[in-house]
């Protein structure tokens, strides 16, 4: 249960940036998990090969992946904004292939890790992984920060307004392009943050994105797009299903149940778990 809760923190962190992009620009970055994979490689190289201090490496990683988000938006998404949603999805699918194989070509297919093992905490007879606790905390803080940004600043208000109605906002004098760029950069930076924390507990290899990519999309959809609270709840629901299912059977069965749960929930509540009925 506790482990499931902490896994939920990791998943919530993963889905945060995607949720923002998905909710605001209404584009599915199928390659989102691959951005995280690149971030993890960045951490690996900065920390293990170049011996940069871990905090500096994390900062570089966050900024770097944020920039990648901007590049992705400018090169791939922007020309396709008017195209059918399916084409946008497929184009980012192409980026997925590209990033995955670029990583294979550049870094090889070996599993790599930081060689840094954080201690395991022992609380009341239970073992709690320190790195998961860290991810949990970071997810919570990041979510609060993003929430404050969206509700307390002018830019945040504009982002939320665009998410509601993308035809009217340009008429109201909001520069849509600028807002999209900000959102993409922010989404990328959140992917970078997720990468920093994931690399502490998982090995990085070019296909690591495929292991948690799909589940990230499902969380965003299940938690209603652009609704961070919903995404958070959905992340924990998924994590509990996966870890409880994995406890009694295999980890794979946990995923099977989670996917099946998603499909059923789409039929029951297509608007997502937390949608308000209008």
């Amino acid at each position: 249960m506790i482990n499931g809760l902490l896994l939920g923190g990791v998943l919530a962190l993963l889905s945060l940036g995607l949720n923002l992009v998905f909710g605001v620009i209404d584009v599915v970055w199928i390659c989102y998990a691959e951005l995280i994979m690149l971030g993890m490689y960045a951490m690996y190289f900065l920390y293990t090969i170049y011996h940069a201090p871990i905090v500096l490496a994390a900062a570089v990683c966050i900024v770097g992946v944020g920039l990648l988000g901007l590049v992705l938006h400018t090169l791939v998404i922007a020309p396709l904004l008017g195209a059918a949603p399916i084409n946008q999805l497929l184009a980012t699918g192409g980026v997925l292939f590209f990033l995955q194989s670029a990583a294979t070509v550049l870094f090889g297919i070996e599993f790599k890790n930081l060689g840094l093992r954080l201690p395991v905490l022992k609380v009341a007879g239970m073992f709690v992984s320190y790195s998961r606790l860290l991810a949990f905390g970071a997810a919570l803080i990041a979510m609060v920060l993003v929430y404050l940004l969206l509700t307390r600043t002018y830019t945040g208000t504009a982002i939320r307004a665009i998410a509601q109605d993308r035809q009217i906002m340009p008429l109201m004098g909001v520069d849509t392009r600028r807002i999209y760029l900000i959102t993409s950069g922010l989404g990328g930076a959140l992917a970078g943050l997720a990468a920093c924390l994931l690399v502490l507990q998982y090995d990085v290899h070019p296909f690591v994105g495929l292991t948690f990519g799909p589940i990230t999309f499902l969380i965003c959809v299940l938690g209603s797009l652009g609704n961070f609270g919903g995404g958070f709840v959905a992340a924990f629901v998924f994590a509990e299903i996966i870890s409880v299912g994995g406890l009694y059977l295999d980890l794979e069965w946990g995923y099977v149940f989670a996917f099946a749960f998603f499909i059923v929930m789409m039929f029951v509540r297509p608007e997502g778990l937390m949608a308000r009925r209008s």
Partner: peptide, 20 residues
């Protein structure tokens, strides 16, 4: 290893943008 998918990925993006 990986190069074929690298080319695929770039082609896919280019095709969707320019030759849907």
């Amino acid at each position: 290893v990986g190069w074929d998918n690298l080319v695929y990925g770039v082609l896919l993006v280019l095709f969707i943008i320019f030759l849907p």
